[in-house]
Design a binder for these strands. Structure first.
Length: 425
RNA sequence: GGAGAGAUGCCCGAGCGGUUUAAGGGGCACGCCUGGAAAGCGUGUGUGCUGAAAGGUACCGAGGGUUCGAAUCCCUCUCUCUCCGCCA
């Protein structure tokens, strides 16, 4: 959420920034108007309330002294009615202002390039090399089927399209990846592991920015008013919702493994094979709560922490800086890490690392106590570290052999009972 | 799922329609005292909104209602605890 005070004082800057990402800047004018009205009503109604309070204690005193207060009481009725009317007008204006603010995206950082879509994203770095093969490498869905480790057909029987069953060495590999990633992030990069609920309430979804705009993208329970979390960002960021954290405790780093659930409503016919785009997938998420002045440095560190996983797995990848138009709703700056899928011959996003500045902190009311003891919104960041549904395909494709086996990357072997390859059973 | 109890400031805890602009205690901060400390004494100690400021206003789990006036009465909801049932 953007700060209404900032919008009020510098509407032009906000309009320009929103235009960069293709957001509707016309709402800025009307929200500034509504805010002006809001403040005028506050001044009026609070004056009446002050008068009301004075009269009330006067009445109390008269009653105590045994005098007749009926005249004073009768006089208060009109003031109270006026207060009620103004209060209800005020709350409808506040609701309108709030609704508009909740619908406005974050302002892209100055270092974010212009552009409308992913074609304008900027290549930041490439690491490693595409593996070369003496044969035609297969896409992961064919490998998964031949080795009998991924079974989308049976998942469809259980649930429907866009689910998979990990089987045998596939299930083991999935579990190994999760443990490997968590161990690196917690033991070497200083993150504290958390294992949160996967069902989340409306306030949490609003706090991180999934709601109100993107309700249709989420799986929602009929009862109660809960959602299947689309990313652990929601749970972990909202752990500190409505809290004031002592500055000395910052920065806070969390790593969480959770299943994630997405409707993929706009993706009909896209990525229908394999496990690239599932309704349910596993992800280790990294979340940071930091001092505002450090957040862009923290973003660079977060990116490095996520990259480390790919380096240890020796997988070729590139890092893209997203342009203004491709940057997510809540983010001020986002890097995507794209791993090379050797069989499908494409780069696929395995991680997205974002600095949300104070956008989520303001929605969720997460503050720290500054030097002058005043509560200040802190900055939140998060990044995948990483998503297994993208990582596991990259591994299968990069490590496949001519004899239809998959070599287990060395760093994963301790997590897989020491086996060095996945073979057909 | 059934029955009951509860939710008050950083913590404990009073409060049962009008000097509560929330008693009292503890903690914490600062000051006095001290060679230094403890004890003691004094002062202070929330958040939001509004306002240039002084100040004003709202908030006693959340949301409604009754009343001139609600922490206090009524309704709905959420959460916690105890017992019963069911259960990994």
């Amino acid at each position: 959420m953007l700060d209404i005070k900032f919008i009020r004082e510098d509407a032009e800057t906000v309009k320009k920034a929103l235009a960069r990402r293709g957001a509707d800047a016309a709402q800025i004018g009307s929200v500034v108007e509504a805010d002006k009205k809001r403040r005028a009503i506050i001044q009026e109604v609070e004056g009446l309330k002050a008068e009301n309070n004075r009269a009330s204690s006067e009445i109390a005193k008269m009653k105590k002294e045994g005098r007749d207060a009926s005249g004073a009481i009768a006089g208060m009725k009109a003031v109270t009615d006026k207060i009620k009317a103004l209060d209800s007008e005020l709350s409808s204006i506040e609701a309108r202002v709030n609704e508009t603010l909740l619908g406005l995206p974050n302002i892209p950082h100055g270092s974010v390039p212009d552009g409308a879509d992913d074609k304008s994203n900027k290549l930041i770095l490439e690491w490693g090399e595409k593996p070369s093969f003496s044969f035609k490498p297969l896409p992961h869905w064919e490998i998964g089927e031949k080795l009998d480790i991924l079974d989308n057909d049976r998942a469809a029987k259980i649930t429907g399209a866009r689910f998979t069953v990990y089987k045998g060495a596939g299930a083991l590999l999935e579990r190994a990846l999760i443990n490997f990633m968590l161990d690196i992030q917690t033991r070497e990069h200083g993150y504290t592991e958390v294992a949160p609920p996967v069902l989340v309430n409306r306030a949490s979804m609003t706090g991180t920015g999934q709601l109100p705009k993107f309700e249709d993208d989420s799986f929602k329970l009929a009862e109660p008013d809960w959602f299947l979390s689309p990313t652990a960002e929601v749970q972990v960021t909202n752990m500190h919702r409505e809290e004031i954290i002592p500055a000395a405790k910052l920065p806070i780093y969390y790593a969480a493994y959770t299943p994630c659930f997405r409707k993929e409503a706009g993706a009909h016919g896209k990525d229908t094979k394999g496990i690239i785009r599932m309704h349910q997938f596993n992800k280790v998420e990294l979340v940071k709560f930091v001092l505002p002045e450090t957040s862009f440095d923290e973003l660079e560190k977060l990116l490095k922490n996520a990259e480390e996983i790919l380096k240890r797995l020796n997988l070729h990848y590139r890092v893209m800086l997203l342009c203004a138009g491709d940057t997510g709703f809540a983010s001020a700056k986002t890097y995507d890490i794209e791993a090379w899928q050797a069989g499908a011959e494409a780069y696929r996003e395995v991680s997205s690392c974002s600095n949300f500045t104070d956008f989520q902190a303001r929605r969720a009311s997460i503050k720290y106590r500054g030097a002058d003891n005043k509560p200040v919104f802190l900055h939140t960041l998060n990044g995948s570290g990483l998503a297994t549904s993208r990582l596991l395909p990259a591994i299968l494709e990069a490590y496949q052999t001519k004899d239809m086996e998959v070599i287990v990357p060395e760093v994963l072997r301790p997590y897989m009972g020491g086996i060095d390859r996945i073979t057909k059973k």
